[in-house]
């Protein structure tokens, strides 16, 4: 494990509550400045791996170290959650406030910012993503592409150091996808990206690995 490793995973095992084992000794690292593509068949356990990394589901055994600290218990994961941003597959899961502004402010408020500061951060994040004037829109009335960009804004407003993206281009049209590619390429954060979209990954990723039969292999 070198000092520049933002995420290190060693020998990670995870089994679904239904009894299906999807991760069977995963080894993975993510270095600073990298945009790592994680590929694999449907149901290979890619999303589960991300959920393990955020501590949302508990791995059976294995080691996870994020930003230099070992994560095992809920409180250890809680400490890093603000510093790692996860973009969910379904944006409707992520946007739960009535209006866009409230939703983007939610993260900064939880991190202890004042309402005025959170508002400023939220508006700036929205405007950085080209979403000026969206603050009073109603989250469930946004189109699929707008929802994805707003969900990205809710994650970015917490200024995370690592981004975990779960199929970010899923269901987007060509225009929004192009916009998303530009945004992702311009962001400084290291990223772990799950996608089936080869064209998208070619333009964004700097390295790629494949999850197959529960282990990681070089792609």
């Amino acid at each position: 494990m070198s000092a520049a490793d933002l995420i290190t995973v060693k020998n990670l095992h995870f089994t679904f509550p239904t009894g299906r084992k999807v991760l069977n000794g995963v080894d993975l690292y993510l270095r600073s400045g990298e945009r790592l593509a994680l590929m694999g068949a449907n149901g290979a356990g890619k999303s589960s791996l991300l959920h393990c990394l955020m501590g949302l589901v508990t791995a059976e055994n294995g080691e996870i170290a994020i930003l230099g600290s070992r994560c095992e218990t809920e409180s250890e994961f809680r400490a890093i959650r603000g510093r790692v941003g996860l973009l969910f597959q379904d944006s409707d899961d992520q946007l739960f406030c009535p209006t866009v502004l409230e939703d983007v402010m939610f993260g900064p408020l939880n991190l202890g910012q004042s309402r005025d500061d959170a508002r400023k951060v939220a508006l700036k994040t929205l405007s950085d993503l080209g979403l000026d004037g969206f603050e009073n829109r109603i989250t469930y009335q946004l189109s699929g592409g707008e929802k994805r960009l707003v969900a990205l804004a809710t994650v970015l407003s917490m200024s995370p150091e690592i981004l975990l993206l779960d199929e970010p281009t899923n269901g987007l049209d060509a225009d929004v996808e192009k916009r998303l590619i530009e945004i992702l390429r311009s962001l400084p954060q290291a990223m772990l990206i799950i996608s089936h979209d080869r064209q998208f990954l070619e333009q964004v990723a700097t390295r790629s690995v494949r999850l197959q039969d529960g282990i990681i292999s070089q792609a």
Binding site: H51, M54, L56, R78, R81, G82, V84, G85, L86, F88, D90, D93, Q94, F96, M105, F106, G107, L109, N110, L111, R115, T154, V155, M158
Partner: peptide
Amino acid sequence: RILWAMKCRAYHGHMH
């Protein structure tokens, strides 16, 4: 999944 998404954004059980 919503609870997970909220936890990922540092939610500790209190709405602001």
